[in-house]
Amino acid sequence: MSATPRVLIVEDEAAIRQFVRLALEADACQVIEAATLADGLARAGEGGLDLVVLDLGLPDGDGIDFVRAYRAWSEGPVLILSARVEENRKIDALDAGADDYLTKPFGVGELRARARALMRRRPRGEQLPPVIEFGEVVVDLSRRQVLRRGEPVHLTPIEYRLLAMMLAHPGQVLTQRKLLADIWGPSYVESSHYLRIYVGHLRQKLEDDPAQPRHFLTETGIGYRFQPAP
C-alpha cells in the first residue's frame, strides 16, 4: 500500500459518490470518481489503485462485468455496493472475484471499516504467518495444531481444511460455492448442508457461544466471513 492509497469509486449517483469520497478522504485516501462502467474501466486501466468501490447497477452495464474485466489484469481489492434484495447478484459478483460487499443503505463507519480491512489485506500469493491467534485460540499451521485456552483441540481433516481456508482470508467474505468447491470438490457446490454442519462443528469447538459467534460469522444467503479480532 502506497503512502496515500488511491481509491476508485464507480457509482452513477453523484450524491453517493460525494459522501463515499468524504469518508475515504478522511482516511487520507486519494479518491478518483467514475459515473459509468466504461469510464470506470478506463480509470482502472491507468493502474496504481489500492481499492475499487463498485456499484452493481450502472447505467451502461452490470458491475459484474467490471469485476471480470478488472480481474483480467489486477488482483486489487474490490468492494461491492448493492441493494439488499439482490443476493444473487452479490454472490455472482463475489464469485467473479469481488472481495467484499456493503448493502445499501450503509453507514460511513461500516464503509471505512471495510475499506481499511481490504487495503490492509495481505497481497495474494504472500504466505500466511505460521501461527495465527484469535480470541483464545492459537492455530499453528506449520504443526497442524490447534489450541484453545492452551488445550489441544481435535479437528477432523475437513474441519481443519475449512479452518485453514477461512484463516487464509481474514475479514473477507467467502461464498458458499467457493468454500464447497475448494474443500469438498466441484460436485458439492449445491450441497450447502455440509457447510452448515462443519461450520457448526468449528463454532462448537472454537467459539465461546456457538449461537453468537465472534469469529466464524455467517453472511446470510451469501457465505461466511472469518473475523480475527471482533
Binding site: 449517483e13 450524491a15 453517493i16 460525494q18 459522501f19 463515499v20 468524504l22 469518508a23 478522511a26 445499501k104 443503505p105 450503509f106 453507514g107 460511513v108 463507519g109 464503509l111
Partner: peptide
C-alpha cells in the same frame, strides 16, 4: 438511493 445518501451524508458530517 436517497436514503443511502441521507445516511451517508449525515454520517460524514461528523468527519
Amino acid at each position: 438511493t436517497p436514503l443511502t445518501v441521507l445516511i451517508g451524508l449525515a454520517d460524514s458530517i461528523s468527519l
